[in-house]
């Protein structure tokens, strides 16, 4: 006779314990109920108030020139061959083809302090264009360029450089022959193919209303703020999702920590980050997270958006005007 189980057997035989399968089911139900109870409800999404549009379709924005004054128009370079003027005050837009031969690609778009608009023509040319797309001046460059931005009276060019570390941006005053390195920003080495390294070192610059222009690399949750004399400082942006460079380079619509940024007059850094779409959302370009940081990178707020945003066209304390994934100009009130 086995007496070892005698102490426990009575409980079973008296029917005070459930059978093994019933017990397991009960535990599963309890755990399931607990998990369901603990699961967070989906975070509320911040709605956008559409002002007008759509002003563009699902086409690549290759650059944009900020308004010269609060009443002035924003000009987007879209589809690499067209300009879209957006008049936020009058709530209207106009589209004009750039007068370049078919097949010519324009990239980068910038406005100098004198109001003139500039873009790259192919890889080795820079053009001054009117808001209606007329070519006003054209000048060949001695080397291929990846990007074009502006700061006050200088164009900022990013040469196609496959061998880091090297200066990322060069300042150039149209009419002047020399180009000089702009800030101490350097390209970064990676243990990847040189084409991938070049792609990861392509920089984007946003709008800065407090004397510093924000620029960022596609793989970093960080920003370099460069002032008018080229002095730069790095600001890290906590809380934004970063993916490995290999993922960034091999995804169709890769998650980008910073898709667009805008520094308002108070120094607040507004960031659009990829984030996750609403369940069942249409496939539209843009980021689903709006994050706000202090000038030194302290996080003020992170908000999930009800629809994706491609650009921050204007920002001021408590309010931003943005371009949505569906091409609408919309307002976001904080």
């Amino acid at each position: 006779m086995n007496t070892a189980g005698a102490d426990v057997a009575p409980a079973v035989t008296k029917g005070t314990r459930m059978s093994g399968s019933k017990e397991a089911m009960a535990i599963a139900l309890l755990v399931g109920a607990a998990l369901t109870g603990c699961r967070k409800a989906p975070a509320a999404r911040v709605p956008l108030h559409h002002l007008f549009g759509p002003v563009i379709g699902n086409e690549v924005i290759a650059g944009w020139a900020e308004a010269a004054s609060p009443d002035d128009r924003v000009v987007l370079l879209v589809g690499e061959q067209a300009l879209v003027q957006i008049d936020i005050t009058k709530r209207r837009s106009e589209r004009h083809a750039i007068a370049v031969p078919t097949g010519t690609s324009c990239w980068g778009h910038a406005r100098l302090r004198d109001g003139s608009l500039w873009t790259l023509k192919g890889r080795r040319g820079v053009m001054q264009i009117s808001e209606r797309g007329d070519v006003l001046k054209e000048r060949p460059l001695d080397s291929p360029q990846f990007g074009l931005f502006a700061h006050e009276d200088r164009l900022l060019l990013q040469p196609a450089d496959f061998q880091p570390p090297a200066p990322v941006l060069y300042a150039w005053r149209p009419g002047n022959e020399t180009r000089t390195p702009w800030s101490g920003l350097r390209s970064r080495p990676f243990n990847l193919a040189r084409t991938s390294v070049a792609a990861l070192n392509m920089i984007t610059c946003g709008v800065g209303r407090r004397g510093e222009r924000p620029c960022w690399f596609p793989d970093e949750a960080a920003m370099t703020l460069i002032d008018g004399s080229g002095v730069m400082r790095r600001v890290f942006l906590p809380g934004l999702e970063v993916v490995r460079p290999e993922v960034l380079l091999t995804s169709d619509n890769p998650p980008r920590p910073v898709r667009d940024a805008f520094v308002d007059a108070a120094g607040t850094i507004w960031v659009i980050s990829s984030g996750l779409p609403v369940d069942g959302a249409e496939d539209q370009p843009g980021g689903w997270i709006l994050a706000k940081y202090s000038s030194s990178g302290e996080r003020f707020a992170t908000q999930l958006l009800a629809e994706p945003v491609r650009l921050i066209l204007r920002a001021e304390p408590g309010r931003a005007v943005v371009l949505t994934g569906s091409g609408m100009v919309a307002e976001l009130v904080q």
Binding site: V60, I61, G147, T195, A198, A199, M202, L249, D252, P254
Partner: peptide, 12 residues
Amino acid sequence: YTDCARRRIIGR
């Protein structure tokens, strides 16, 4: 290649 990549990871 960099033109193509630019549209994907820099274009907005």
